[in-house]
C-alpha cells in the first residue's frame, strides 16, 4: 500500500505543521518576548524618555520620539523572532532531541524541513506584523499606505536572520559559539542599528559602518514604510534583506542535507 509520492507543497505543509505543533506547547514565552517586551519598551522609552526628548530636543528627524521608535520596535521584534527560533532550537533538533532526524525518516526531505521551518517563522512574523501595524496606527505613527505591507516586511526581516542562522546552526557541532554571537553580534546590532536614535547622532566615521549592520536595513525599511520616505533607499534596504534570506536559504539546504542524510 504505497502512498502516492507527495508533492512539494504537501510535504512543506506537513513540515510546517510539525513546527506549529511544537509551538502549541511552548507559545507562552513568545507572548512575553514578542508582545509584552516591545510594548514595555514603547511605554518606557517612547513615552517616558520621549517626554525628556521633547523637552530638550523637540522632534527627532521631524518626528516625535514615540513615532520615531515605534517602527524600530517592530523591526527589532522581527529580528529577535528570527534569531530566537534559529540557533539553539535548530541545534537541539539536529543534535540533542534529533527531531529533524525523525522528520526525515518520513517522506519529508531535508529541504522540506527547512522550508517548513522558515515558513513557520514567517507565519509568526506576519502575525506579529499585523499586531504591530495596529499598535503603530494606534499611536499615530502610520503616515503612509505602505504600512499595509508591514506584515510582509516583518516576515522578510525575520527570514533575513533566520535563514542564515538556521543554516549555521545545522552546520556546527556545539553551541559554544552561540553566546559569543549574542554578545558580539546581536547585542551591538540591537544597540547600533539606528534603533533608538537617528544615524545623524553617530560620529561621521561611524555612519558608513552602519550600512553593514543587517538590522539597520530592517529598521530603516520599516520606518520608511510607516513614516514615508523616498523609494530608492527603501529598495536598497529591501535588496539587502532579500539577499540575506535567499543566501541563507541556499546555504541551509546544503548544511541541513549534510547533517541529516550524508
Amino acid at each position: 500500500m504505497s502512498e502516492p509520492a507527495l508533492l512539494g507543497w504537501s510535504r512543506w505543509r506537513r513540515a510546517w505543521w510539525f513546527h506549529a505543533m511544537y509551538y502549541a506547547q511552548t507559545w507562552r514565552g513568545s507572548v512575553v518576548s514578542s508582545v509584552l517586551l516591545p510594548l514595555g519598551y514603547l511605554g518606557a522609552l517612547g513615552v517616558g524618555v520621549g517626554h525628556l526628548v521633547a523637552k530638550h530636543t523637540g522632534l527627532v528627524d521631524g518626528q516625535t520620539y514615540l513615532h520615531f521608535i515605534a517602527p524600530s520596535l517592530l523591526a527589532t521584534t522581527a529580528f529577535q523572532l528570527g534569531e530566537g527560533e534559529s540557533l539553539w532550537p535548530v541545534l537541539a533538533a539536529v543534535k540533542w532531541t534529533r527531531s529533524y532526524h525523525a522528520a526525515v525518516t518520513t517522506p519529508l526531505e531535508p529541504r522540506d524541513v527547512l522550508v517548513g521551518k522558515l515558513a513557520w517563522v514567517a507565519t509568526r512574523a506576519i502575525a506579529i506584523g499585523v499586531f504591530y501595524t495596529l499598535i503603530i496606527a494606534a499611536v499615530g505613527a502610520a503616515r503612509s499606505w505602505w504600512v499595509l505591507t508591514l506584515p510582509l516586511l516583518s516576515a522578510l526581516v525575520s527570514l533575513a536572520f533566520a535563514a542564515p542562522l538556521v543554516a549555521y546552526a545545522a552546520h556546527v557541532d556545539s553551541d559554544l559559539s552561540f553566546p559569543l554571537i549574542y554578545r558580539f553580534g546581536f547585542v551591538p546590532m540591537f544597540l547600533f542599528s539606528a534603533t533608538f536614535y537617528p544615524v545623524s547622532a553617530y560620529p561621521g566615521w561611524l555612519r558608513p559602518v552602519v550600512q553593514f549592520v543587517p538590522l539597520y536595513h530592517g529598521v530603516a525599511l520599516i520606518r520608511a514604510a510607516c513614516l514615508g520616505g523616498s523609494l530608492a533607499p527603501a529598495l536598497a534596504h529591501l535588496a539587502v534583506l532579500a539577499v540575506l534570506a535567499g543566501g541563507g536559504f541556499a546555504w541551509g539546504q546544503v548544511t541541513l542535507r549534510r547533517r541529516l542524510i550524508d
Binding site: V49, L52, K55, T57, L180, R183, L191, F192, Y197, A201
Partner: peptide, 22 residues
Amino acid sequence: SGFVEPLFYLLSIGIGLNHLVG
C-alpha cells in the same frame, strides 16, 4: 567578554540618547 559588554550599552547611550535628552 562579559567585561566588555557594559561598554556597548554605555557607548550606545553616550553616543545617541545623551544628545537627545540632555
